[in-house]
């Protein structure tokens, strides 16, 4: 057990899985970096240095720097997966999924089903999500709701180092295509993480905080926003349950409903957009299956429906903050008592 950053936790999961299983290969743009450059090999280890060190141990047959060819190498990764390799393919920014959308949602997601179960596609796609670095509309989105739409994919959204390592190991060992979403602003987060390998199953939400008055469901970086809000609310005598689903497919609806049954009040905070997002998805499920528990309408705290601006002041209006979560919780408490 030792303190690790989110980045180190992800690196360690990949390292341990690659040591354990020689069919695990790493594919993507600059996953090592420096290939053919004439300078250092393994110059980058990915744009955020997450995969540094792996080329040295596993060699160029297993750590493959690709050309800028998302469509091509995603297709290749799927073909390799169908052939018995266990690829971890890097989609640098989830915003780029448009370039290989067909491969991800029409091939990887549907391959097994469409061919009647003859195959398995044990592919993990690691990708960066999230806003907050002023890098604008095409490098800051949270597209996990889009991936969750497609049956056949599994979607993982870890909010901290401990979850990241255990969920990534599970993703790599999983025999289905998994989209593993790492929030850019969480890479420096530090937490106690076991040194040994361990697995966290999918479809198990984490009960981050117990309170009893309001249920807050939060994803990825928003879990920490929710925790901030909960501290403020506690001073006002409002105690929050905070639930982190950890995976959006499969989604642990049961834990969310359990909490709502007790609190009767639900606030969902999600950095993905207000239309067709996870907040809408979860709200609709609870409205349908937990209606009798609800004492107030469900409130969603999401960004506005706008492309993400670069200007820092505008971007901070975009990203949900603790203040908005506090306001939502107060509102839903007032409605319940009103």
């Amino acid at each position: 057990m030792s303190k690790k950053t989110y980045r180190q936790a992800v690196n360690e999961a990949i390292l341990q899985e690659m040591r354990r299983d020689s069919s695990v290969i790493l594919i993507g743009e600059d996953v090592a970096g420096g290939a053919g450059g004439g300078g250092e090999d393994d110059a980058w280890g990915g744009p955020m240095a997450v995969t540094k060190g792996l080329l040295g141990e596993f060699g160029a047959n297993r750590v493959i720097d690709t050309p800028i060819s998302e469509a091509g190498y995603m297709g290749m990764a799927i073909g390799a997966a169908a052939s018995g390799q266990r690829p971890v393919a890097d989609l640098m920014f989830n915003d780029f999924v448009g370039v290989c959308f067909d491969q991800v949602v029409n091939q990887a997601a549907k391959y097994r089903y469409m061919y009647g179960g003859q195959d398995k596609i044990p592919l993990t796609i690691r990708t960066m999500i999230g806003a907050g670095l002023s890098i604008s509309a095409q490098h800051s989105q949270c597209l996990y709701p889009v991936f969750s739409y497609f049956a056949g994919l599994k979607v993982v959204v870890p909010s901290g180092p401990y979850d990241a390592k255990g969920l990534l190991a599970s993703a790599i060992r999983d025999d289905d295509p998994v989209i593993f979403c790492e929030h850019k602003l969480l890479y420096e987060m530090v937490e106690e993480v076991p040194d040994e390998p361990y697995l966290i199953p999918f479809g198990e939400a984490n009960f981050v905080r117990e309170g009893g008055d309001v249920t807050i469901v939060a994803l990825s970086r928003m879990v920490h926003i929710a925790l901030e809000a909960a501290k403020i609310l506690a001073k006002e005598g409002i105690e929050c349950d905070i639930i982190d689903p950890r995976t959006t497919t499969p989604l642990d609806v049961e834990t969310i409903l359990e909490s709502v049954e007790e609190t009767g009040r639900l606030v969902i905070v999600d950095e993905a957009g207000p239309r067709c997002g996870m907040a809408s998805d979860i709200a609709s499920v609870v409205a349908e299956e937990g209606f009798s528990s609800l004492e107030a309408p469900i409130i969603k705290v999401t960004p506005p429906h706008v492309p993400i601006p670069a200007a820092p002041n505008l971007e901070s209006l975009y990203i949900p903050n603790a203040g908005r979560v506090v306001a939502a919780a107060r509102k839903v408490m007032a409605k319940a008592q009103g």
């Binding site: 401990y162 255990g166 076991p194 040994e196 390998p197 361990y198 697995l199």
Partner: peptide
């Protein structure tokens, strides 16, 4: 429960 679960999940 969470603490025990975490311990059980460690490989081996």
């Amino acid at each position: 429960v969470e603490e025990v679960l975490k311990a059980k999940r460690i490989e081996w």
